[in-house]
Measured scan of single mutants.
Amino acid sequence: TFELKGKVGKVVKIAEDHYLVEVEGDKWIAYSDEKLSLGDRVMVVDVDGLKLKAKRIP
């Protein structure tokens, strides 16, 4: 999973306390310091076990 750092994905679902992000065809649980919206493009900035930390990108 460490190779996911720096990869770009898309928010495909918003849950109460996390997001579901699709990166290279796989879906991952993600969290972010900022509020994300459905369809936002994100970059993986860190990997915490099986969770990704994501940041919105333009």
Rank of each mutant, 00 (worst) to 15 (best):
K53D: 03
E22G: 03
A15I: 14
L38W: 09
Y19F: 07
L52E: 00
K27N: 09
L36Q: 01
K13A: 11
E22D: 09
V8I: 13
K53Y: 08
K53Q: 04
E34P: 02
Y31S: 11
T1N: 15
V23M: 06
Y31M: 12
L36F: 05
L36S: 01
E34K: 04
G6T: 02
K51F: 07
D48A: 06
V42D: 00
H18T: 09
G6V: 01
K55L: 05
E3V: 02
V44W: 03
D26H: 14
E34Q: 08
V21K: 00
V42E: 00
I57V: 11
D33W: 08
D33M: 09
K35T: 11
V23A: 03
I57K: 03
I57W: 10
I14P: 02
G49N: 08
V42M: 07
D33K: 07
V23C: 05
V47M: 07
E16G: 14
Y31R: 07
K13W: 13
D33A: 09
G39D: 13
G6P: 01
K5L: 15
V23K: 01
L52Q: 01
K53A: 03
A15C: 10
L38Y: 09
A15F: 13
D17C: 09
E22F: 12
V21Q: 00
K55T: 06
K27V: 09
E3I: 03
R41T: 13
D26S: 14
V12S: 06
V42T: 03
D48Q: 12
V44D: 00
K10R: 13
G9Y: 02
V21N: 00
W28K: 01
I14N: 05
G6C: 07
E22Q: 07
D46P: 02
R56T: 04
K13M: 11
G6E: 03
K55A: 14
S32Y: 01
V44H: 01
V42S: 01
I57G: 03
E16Y: 13
R56Y: 06
D40E: 06
V11D: 00
L38V: 11
K5T: 14
G25L: 06
D48H: 07
A30M: 15
M43I: 13
K55D: 05
D48N: 08
K27L: 10
V23I: 15
L38N: 07
V8A: 07
E3D: 06
Y31Q: 09
M43K: 06
L38T: 08
K27F: 10
L52P: 01
